[in-house]
Write a protein that binds this DNA or RNA. Structure first.
Ligand SMILES: [Mn+2]
Ligand SMILES: [Mn+2]
Ligand SMILES: [Zn+2]
Ligand SMILES: [Zn+2]
Lengths: 142, 142
DNA sequence: AAATTAAATGAAGATGATTTTCATTATCAA
DNA sequence: TTGATAATGAAAATCATCTTCATTTAATTT
């Protein structure tokens, strides 16, 4: 936690940005939530704690947390982006239940290896990828 | 060509929809374009042929072509959707050049197999998936 | 401890892709 | 040909995202 905060404060310092009350409160709230949240999801949560923080600040702070390397945006094709933790979280992809919305995090070094091989075969230099499998989760199949 | 048209007309018939001049013209234009087009891309092309066809009709017809099974939507995270042929085209994924926008179609039965295995391990029943690798194409690496 | 400088905030509005509305026109079966 | 109903096109609505701007706040300098 403190570690993540240091990363964020470091990023601010490097970019001549300020460590404000809003940013502190929003960062701590974000770090507590181990979920895939939309901006609005997060704004709702923030509201309950402190309704003096505006939507624009929540929006800008989430973007900033991403830039600092603590979070990343994920797009499940819902028409709005979600944010997830990146700090101390290994790269992973997702299974997405189209019934209940459940997100299951998956890792497959074999697939990653094959992806790189595939890219190489096309003289393509990969920088990142997105892999999502949509379907029905264990609960929803029943 | 004719085969695809039959599929589309069949879909219309099954749903009490009509085979109009606009739909005929749009379908034929779409079938001719072997590209990944946004709605607006396609609208621009349509305009040059026949500027009496409105944007809404182009929009609705592309959706309809998808529903009929001849096309599918693909989202490369650009903030707008693209459409690609699906009829007589095997499933494939994409390499996306973030410099020049080039799209390279890829197939990997091994990856698909591993994806299914992964899903199964999580009691997950997959229906479809999305895999995109972003980076620099052979041209842009130079 | 002021004063200074520049970034941050929040309310409101702009943007832009997508989707819908509605009056008019076209299709098609009887 | 007619009647019922679907399709069309212009315009407006929607909605997530992003920006603007007047005001406040943080950080630095006297
Ligand atoms: Mn995740
Ligand atoms: Mn393709
Ligand atoms: Zn589920
Ligand atoms: Zn390229």
């Amino acid at each position: 936690m403190r570690e993540a905060e240091k990363v964020f404060i470091g990023y601010l310092a490097e970019h001549n940005l300020r460590w404000t009350n809003q940013r502190k409160e929003l960062l701590h709230l974000f770090l507590k939530m181990e979920k895939h949240l939309t901006i609005d999801d997060f704004y709702q949560i923030v509201q309950r704690k402190n309704d003096r923080i505006g939507y624009a600040t929540v929006y800008r702070t989430l973007k900033l947390i991403c830039k600092s390397g603590l979070a990343r945006e994920v797009d499940f094709g819902e028409g709005k982006v979600r944010f997830e933790h990146k700090y101390a979280h290994e790269h992973h992809d997702h299974l997405v239940c189209t019934q209940c919305g459940k997100l299951i995090e998956i890792k497959s070094p074999e697939i990653e290896r094959l992806q790189n091989k595939l890219a190489e075969e096309h003289c393509f230099e990969p920088t990142w990828h997105k892999m999502q499998i949509f379907g029905n989760c264990g609960e929803c199949r029943k």
